[in-house]
Lab assay of single mutants.
Amino acid sequence: KEQQNAFYEILHLPNLTEEQRNGFIQSLKDDPSVSKEILAEAKKLNDAQA
């Protein structure tokens, strides 16, 4: 469930490039146990690119 939530949120971050988004999603698939950390990174990058 946590992985699904992170997946959904990353898909809807407006400021990520397609490449960045795909990278985060691939990381989620590779290691779902760190989905919280991956989501935090994605949000940080999204904010930095706002």
Rank of each mutant, 00 (worst) to 15 (best):
A42W: 01
L13M: 15
D31G: 13
L13T: 02
I38G: 01
S27F: 13
N5A: 15
V34R: 12
R21E: 01
E9I: 07
A42G: 02
F7D: 06
T17M: 05
A48W: 06
Q3E: 15
P32E: 06
Q49K: 03
E37A: 07
Q26W: 08
L11E: 13
F24G: 00
Q20F: 02
A48S: 09
L39C: 04
N22W: 11
Q49D: 04
N46T: 01
K36Q: 08
Q20N: 03
Q49A: 11
L16V: 03
K1H: 15
D31E: 13
E37L: 09
K29A: 10
Q3K: 04
E41H: 10
N15I: 02
L45Y: 07
L39M: 15
N22K: 15
I38C: 03
I10G: 01
D47Q: 14
P14V: 11
V34Y: 11
N15G: 06
K43Q: 02
K29R: 13
F24N: 00
A40R: 15
D47G: 10
G23H: 10
N46P: 00
L11N: 10
K36E: 12
E18V: 11
Q26R: 01
N5I: 15
P14E: 03
Q4C: 06
L28S: 02
N22A: 11
L16P: 00
I38R: 02
I25V: 11
Y8D: 08
Q26L: 11
Y8M: 14
T17G: 04
A48V: 13
E18P: 10
N15S: 07
Q49F: 08
F7S: 05
K43D: 03
A40K: 12
A40V: 12
K1S: 15
Q49C: 02
K36M: 11
L16W: 00
E18A: 13
E9S: 09
E41A: 12
I38H: 02
I38V: 06
A6H: 06
S33N: 12
N22G: 09
A42E: 00
Q49W: 08
S33F: 13
E9M: 09
F7G: 04
P32L: 08
N15E: 06
R21G: 02
I25N: 05
Q4D: 14
Y8N: 12
S27G: 10
Q20C: 01
L11C: 07
K29C: 03
